[in-house]
């Protein structure tokens, strides 16, 4: 296990380096620059600004300069938000996304697995259809409909919860965004879980267990649940990164200061350093959670562990 972790860490560094390199050169190719604005800058001013951001040098020098700073953990100044460095922006936005994302993720996982399992046990019954139909609303209803709908009902009409804002993470401000995100992810997890659970329930060893007269509860909990989780676990890695790095729509609708907003604005503003910084963080997270998923896979499926 330790060897596995060390190996993964050793692989992570070149992976991230490749990621940074590709992103660095690719964003420069996008039309427009951070300094493209409605009021065109005079060549003089543009030259001054470029000098300030070390963009007056050839691209490869800029790249080396960026890597040099990166080695010191410095992601550089933001191009758009002149008063902040990328480190500051990430440090303030990440905890927000983490909190919302982690809560939504746990809720979605627990509810999704429970619903999926329940539906699978009662396959093709009315309960199955109803539960899955409700769950599926989360897949078929776009988040930009769901989130404002929640606001309209619970904030504008009922006045139960605030319509937006972070308010230092006050619970009341967290409820609606977490709910919206939970519904979005829960449905997918429920569907995957249902599918794989049905498959497991049809397998020989479960039939044997059933034939032996073991009670359903024991069969499900002790024998069926673990193998049925495999596809869900596969889905979790990327989903978790998606949840943590924030849902652009949810953050925009609820006015949350998370990373999702940064990513869209960063891309649209051509905020090179912000996008690079975010890419790096997302990349590192992806690698981390893929590793975690692989470890989980091993824990659940002994066959993988053997190899």
């Amino acid at each position: 296990m330790l060897k596995f972790i060390v190996k993964r860490c050793a692989l992570a560094v070149p992976t991230l380096l490749i990621l940074v390199t590709i992103t660095f050169f690719l964003i420069q190719m996008a039309p427009g620059s951070p300094f493209t604005s409605e009021r065109q800058l005079s060549p003089q001013v543009l030259a001054n600004i470029k000098a300030m951001y070390h963009m007056d040098k050839p691209l490869w020098q800029q790249y080396l300069y960026y890597l040099g700073n990166l080695a010191h953990g410095d992601l550089g100044p933001s191009f758009k938000y002149a008063d902040h460095t990328v480190n500051q922006l990430l440090a303030s936005s990440f905890p927000v996304s983490l909190r919302i994302g982690a809560l939504a993720f746990i809720a979605a996982l627990v509810l999704g697995v429970a619903i999926g399992t329940l539906a699978a046990c009662k396959q093709n019954s009315l309960l199955d259809y109803c539960v899955m139909a409700v769950a599926m609303t989360g897949i078929v209803l776009p988040s930009f409909v769901l989130a404002p709908l929640l606001v309209l009902v619970f904030s504008v009409n009922l006045h139960w919860l605030p319509a937006g804002g972070w308010n230092h993470g006050h619970w009341a401000n967290v409820v609606l965004p977490v709910t919206a995100m939970t519904i979005m992810y829960m449905a997918s997890i429920a569907r995957i879980q249902r599918g794989s659970m049905i498959e497991v329930l049809n397998s020989h060893y479960i039939r044997t267990a059933r034939a032996k007269g073991l009670p359903w509860r024991i069969i499900i909990m002790r024998h069926a649940l673990r193998p049925s989780l495999l596809p869900v676990v596969s889905y979790l890695g990327p989903a978790f990164v998606g949840v943590i790095t924030g849902s652009v729509v949810v953050e925009t609708v609820f006015g949350l200061p998370g990373t999702g907003q940064h990513f869209v604005h960063g891309a649209l503003n051509r905020d090179y350093s912000l996008v690079l910084g975010l890419t790096l963080v997302i990349g590192a997270l992806t690698i981390l959670f893929t590793a975690v998923v692989d470890i989980l896979y091993g824990l659940i499926d002994p066959k993988v562990r053997c190899q």
């Binding site: 606001v151 605030p162 925009t252 609708v253």
Partner: peptide
């Protein structure tokens, strides 16, 4: 000051009294 980019989000928060 709230940097609300979405017109709909702002309108909802206005209606909610925020």
């Amino acid at each position: 000051w709230l940097p609300l980019t979405s017109e709909t989000a702002e309108l909802n928060r206005y209606k909610a009294g925020e």
